[in-house]
Amino acid sequence: MSFIVDYYNYWVVVFLMMVGFYTVIVANNLVKKIVGLNIFQTSVFILYISMGKVSGGSAPIVAEGITIYSNPLPHVLILTAIVVGVATTAVGLALVVRIKRAYGTVEENEFKDKDDLI
C-alpha cells in the first residue's frame, strides 16, 4: 500500500503519460493527436517538478530560520522544456492548418491515398 501512497506523484505522471501516448496512437483527428502529445509532454514536466521537491523544504529563497530548501534546478530546466513544448505545438498546429488546406480534412480516415496516413 505504501508503494502506491508514497509515490503517488509518479503514479499521476505514469497515468498522464499513458493517457497522452494512447491518444497520440489512436486519435483519428490530427488536432487530437497534438493534444495527446501535449498531455504526454506535460506528464514529464510534472515528473521533473515533483522531483525537485524536498520534503519539508521551503521555496529556495534565502530567509532567516529556514534551513531546508527545495531544489530549484529541475523547475528551471522544465521552463526550457515548456518553451520547447510550446514551439512543438505551434509547428504541429501550423502543419495541421496546411494539411486542412491541402487535403480538405484533418480526419485521418478521410485521406484518399492510404500512403499519406500518419
Partner: peptide, 30 residues
C-alpha cells in the same frame, strides 16, 4: 502536399523520441 503529412508524422514520432530522452535525462539527474 504529401510533404505535409510526412512532416506531421515526423513531428509526432520525433517529439515522442525527444520526450523519452528528456525522461531519461531526468532519471539520471534524479
Amino acid at each position: 502536399k504529401r510533404s505535409l503529412t510526412a512532416a506531421f508524422r515526423y513531428l509526432v514520432m520525433g517529439t515522442i523520441g525527444a520526450t523519452f530522452i528528456l525522461i531519461g535525462v531526468g532519471m539520471m539527474y534524479m
